[in-house]
Design a protein around this nucleic acid. Structure first.
Lengths: 230, 230
DNA sequence: GTTTGTAACGAACATCGTTCACTACGAACA
DNA sequence: TGTTCGTAGTGAACGATGTTCGTTACAAAC
């Protein structure tokens, strides 16, 4: 061996490496979003995330108590992408504004792996989640919706938004396999005995028409029409 | 050693054990529901399920290709508990019947661990899931809802039902910790800066009132009112 | 009584989240 | 300038997971 000394771990200073910046919560969250977009929620493992940051898995526990807490931060950071409606919008268009806001939320959340699953397992209380709730409540107040109805509406609407986002990310994961899913669903319906499932058989074509966005827009229009009734 | 032979594994015939019945898909699914109710969805591991059946984890793969396929069967079996509306109900009460059906579905699905998560990750196509869809379509047809609206409604309503069921099972898991969650949520709202979140601050009391069932009933009434408009 | 197909078994593999004893860096201090 | 010290970072280790696969033992068929 020509090495000057033979210290076992070969000390190789950290400065020899390309000046690794110190870890931060924000940096970890951004790296997690990168892994999330590339590999989905199940792909966001502590080891893969550490590899993305050129560190060790254990180091992440200095900044987050566990994976769930990290994913909660990731969810809130995803919500930061969501443009909130301006405050000076005409009051008469509150329903259209709210529909647009919620549809955009489905697209934004659904566009990041399956991060919506995080919001379906725990009530999000991050700053951006609260800002979204605040914006929804402001639009409902603009429409003259009462206190109790508005309170329940914001809860149930965000529940629906996250469910729709999860569905969207499930059937649009990197390569439009939506076609294959629709085709197999169509086959399933076609093979059903018409006497036992007469309505499914009758509507087997309509059941597979429309994109996720079409369906969500129809549903939100319908819900808001119901909310606006009294 | 006084043993007659010294064969290493000590052959101990299976008949020495209490006449274990052979495995079946139905038996495995029923055991899985038992584990699910006791320990939640994450508690349904292949090893724990095998232990419940006094067998080995690998044996389960004779009947199910993987854990997801098994859980899909579990979900469909849970739906078997759901009583479907009779066919001779008065047409005028289709909205009340549909509300009851969907609320009961939330209770039934939400009463079994977090099994609702299965339905939010893949479109259920089991016989009982199809029977539920058929029943919903029958009620919508009875109410004169058009083909396209009914088709999208059954999809979006079941999506909401599973999301609500998942939320219910999350905040009602073995011991009514719902109180603790509500209390901490109330604290969170109370500590929010009123100038940045004026509407949340104004509605901080209304936001935490009402059980999950109250909210779901209000939401479904509202949605069906919107569907019935045109 | 023999053969044979297959359900059941259990060890093994790769991977996961998490913990913890230890290292080495940078700031505070002498 | 030299020393101390708190802590961010490291990486091996642990227990548990889903899944695979070579082997075993049972029951039906011949």
């Amino acid at each position: 061996m020509a090495t000057p000394t033979s210290r076992p771990p070969e000390p190789v200073s950290r400065r020899a490496r390309p000046a690794k910046p110190p870890l931060t919560r924000a940096g970890i969250v951004m790296a997690a979003i990168r892994v999330l977009d590339a590999e989905g929620l199940d792909g966001v493992t502590m080891r893969k995330l550490a590899q993305e940051l050129d560190t060790a898995a254990g180091s992440l526990y200095v900044y987050f108590a566990n994976r769930d807490e990290l994913l909660a931060s990731v969810y809130d950071e995803v919500l930061a992408e969501l443009p909130l409606p301006a405050r000076d919008r005409p009051a008469a268009e509150w329903r259209a504004d709210l529909t647009d806001l919620l549809l955009t939320a489905i697209t934004v959340i659904g566009g990041h792996g399956g991060i919506a699953r995080v919001a379906l397992g725990a009530i999000p209380t991050g700053p951006h989640a609260l800002a979204l709730a605040e914006a929804i409540l402001a639009l409902l107040a603009r429409g003259g919706v009462g206190a109790q109805a508005a309170s329940w509406a914001v809860d149930q609407l965000t529940l629906y938004v996250n469910a729709a986002a999860l569905e969207e990310s499930t059937y649009r994961q990197r390569g439009a396999r939506e076609q294959a899913v629709l085709a197999s669903l169509r086959t399933t319906y076609a093979q059903l005995p018409p006497e036992r499932y007469p309505n499914i058989h009758r509507l087997r074509e309509e059941l597979v028409t429309g994109s996720g966005d079409d369906r969500a827009r129809w549903f939100l229009d319908t819900v808001l029409a119901g909310i606006a009734i009294p």
